[in-house]
């Protein structure tokens, strides 16, 4: 399988601290790739570098072979790289209907139109309805997002990334903060993604990681520690040490 997303010796320093120290990561097309590691390992920083929220101190990022290291965040989205956030980043004053419609209009290139009314494009409306249905948001689509229960907001968080129709999707702890009995809904929507969509997942819950991933990278102190298929990573004594050590600390 061809490599879709690649980092070359990626580094990010905050002051004197190296949050990400020389990470070279290859993600293959259609992969279900998990990025795990203890708290503070730099996982979210890697996502922020990949999506352009942060600029790396050194190193390169390649998307489908093209260097996107200095590309603006919104342009990366237009090239098919979308993400979700660990802590919901939503438009609290808009409705789910408006929110999803926004992302779809933007993808279709009609987001900057000022002479048409929202909803005058039937393709956009059809797709909004489809996505809201898929994420169980149809019944609340006219409510203000800020008033929705957390579980629904979490679904919208993921729906919004899906509405960008990404070729590469970065999920930053999609089930974070969601009660146990609502998790399956979110995980089911993630599992139902088309096979050619590449997914990079950050997750703390090892049950989710091992049921989902076909490849796992372990990040410790900003550096890539182990990288391989789940069975291999599970057997690795160093990974056990890191996680056992952490759980003992905690």
């Amino acid at each position: 399988m061809p490599v879709v997303l690649e980092t070359v010796a990626l580094e990010k320093h905050f002051g004197g601290i190296a949050a990400v120290a020389g990470v070279s990561l290859s993600i293959e097309k259609g992969a279900r790739h998990a990025l795990i590691g203890p708290n503070g390992a730099g996982k979210t920083t890697v996502i922020n570098l990949l999506t352009g929220v942060l600029r790396p101190t050194a190193g390169r990022i390649l998307l489908e072979g093209e260097d996107i290291t200095s590309l603006d965040a919104y342009k990366r989205v237009q090239r098919g790289l979308a993400r979700t956030f660990q802590i919901n980043q939503l438009f609290l004053d808009l409705t789910p209907l408006e929110t999803v419609g926004l992302a779809i209009s933007e993808r279709l290139g009609s987001g900057a139109q000022w002479w048409r009314l929202v909803g005058s494009n039937p393709h956009v409306v059809e797709e909004i309805v489809e996505i809201l249905g898929r994420f169980h948001l149809t019944d609340v689509m006219h409510e203000r997002t800020g008033n929705l229960p957390y579980g629904k907001q979490r679904l919208l968080e993921i729906a919004l990334a899906i509405a960008c129709r990404p070729r590469v999707l970065l999920l930053d702890e999609p089930a974070a903060g969601v009660p146990e009995d609502e998790r399956h809904e979110i995980l089911a929507t993630v599992a139902a993604l088309p096979a050619d969509v590449t997914v990079l997942l950050i997750e703390h819950d090892m049950d989710i990681v091992f049921s989902f991933a076909d490849r796992i990278s372990v990040l410790v102190n900003g550096a890539l520690f182990v990288d391989g298929p789940p069975a291999e990573v599970a057997r690795d004594p160093r990974v056990k040490a890191v996680y056992l050590g952490e759980s003992l600390d905690a």
Binding site: T51, G52, V53, D72, A73, Y74, K75, V77, Q78, A82, R83, F85, Q89, L90, F91, L102, A103, E106, R107, G111, L160, A161, A163, C164
Partner: peptide, 9 residues
């Protein structure tokens, strides 16, 4: 932040 993350310039 989110606006940029859905492709809005």
């Amino acid at each position: 932040l989110r606006a940029a993350s859905i492709g809005i310039s």
